[in-house]
Computed example of a mutant assay.
Amino acid sequence: KQLTPRSRAAVADLAARGTVVALASGRMYRHCMAPQVEALGLATPCICYNGAVILDPTNGQILSERPIAPELVTPVIDFAAARGLTLNLYRDDVLYIQRPTRWSELYVARTGAQPVFREDLYDWFRGSASTKMLLLDEPAEIEVLLREWQARVDGQLYVTISDPEYLEFMDPSATKGWALRRLCEHLGIDPAESAAFGDARNDLPLLEAAGYAVAMANARPELQAVADEIAPSNDEDGVAQVLERWLD
């Protein structure tokens, strides 16, 4: 997911007029969000890892971090090892994967991430906290795994789907919605004065927390149900169309 030139221009215009603009993503900062932040010239802290990290791009300072506790990381590692699934583990803004697979290649191609491969990863990482975890598989299987893991963890982890092939695990408090409220507090902004755009399942807490919620036309029904406005789809530069209207 990349900002189009039209969207970049609209966001830059909005920021130039004094509006506080922040990016929120499920992705890591290094390699993935950093190029977008730099291209836009943004100095506002950004929400990374689905809300597990809020980072100041001007100095790299982490303003908030909610990693997954080690005792909750181990069962997911054991599950991935037993099923032979590709598992992304994150620590200190570094992505670790056990070995290259077609799923790791897909993830790298989509995000620009530069993983560190370690054959001994699971033994090496066991007992450590992880910023988030991400399992990759076919979309139909990811839907099955979502229901299985939501029942298994019973609220001890926040489990969601971002892209159809990604099952993401975070600390229960690490949502984009929680991070938006925390960022607003840091900036001295009333969350009721905020606006947010979203299209994926992991964007639902963000839209619920924002004062004005915009769901894309390609968004899932549950996002459109909580939205104040439905924008044209991502393929139609929907974010840019809404921002351009606001800027008129």
Rank of each mutant, 00 (worst) to 15 (best):
L183T: 05
P221W: 07
E165N: 14
P205C: 06
I230D: 07
G18V: 02
D248G: 11
V20S: 07
W149M: 14
A69Y: 03
M28V: 03
T74Q: 11
C46F: 13
L207S: 08
L42V: 13
V239N: 00
N59H: 07
E148G: 01
E71Y: 03
A209K: 14
R245C: 04
R220A: 15
Q2A: 15
F197A: 13
N202S: 02
R6W: 02
P115T: 11
V144P: 01
Q241I: 03
Q98S: 07
L14M: 09
R152C: 04
Y96E: 08
N88A: 07
P172C: 08
R182L: 06
I230L: 05
R118V: 04
E165K: 04
N202I: 01
P221F: 10
L180S: 03
S162P: 11
L134C: 08
A209I: 09
L167G: 12
S25H: 13
R8I: 08
Q156E: 14
E105T: 14
L146M: 05
L72E: 11
V242M: 08
C48F: 14
T160C: 15
L145Y: 11
D120L: 01
D203Y: 01
V239L: 12
M170H: 11
D154W: 00
L23T: 10
R17D: 00
M133Y: 04
C48L: 12
A9I: 01
L243P: 05
R91S: 07
E193H: 04
S7P: 02
D92I: 01
P172D: 05
E168W: 09
Y49V: 04
V73C: 09
I161M: 10
D248K: 05
C184A: 13
L40P: 09
Y90I: 10
R182A: 08
A43W: 05
A215F: 14
A69N: 02
R147N: 10
A129C: 03
T19K: 02
F125S: 07
Y166H: 15
L3T: 03
L157H: 08
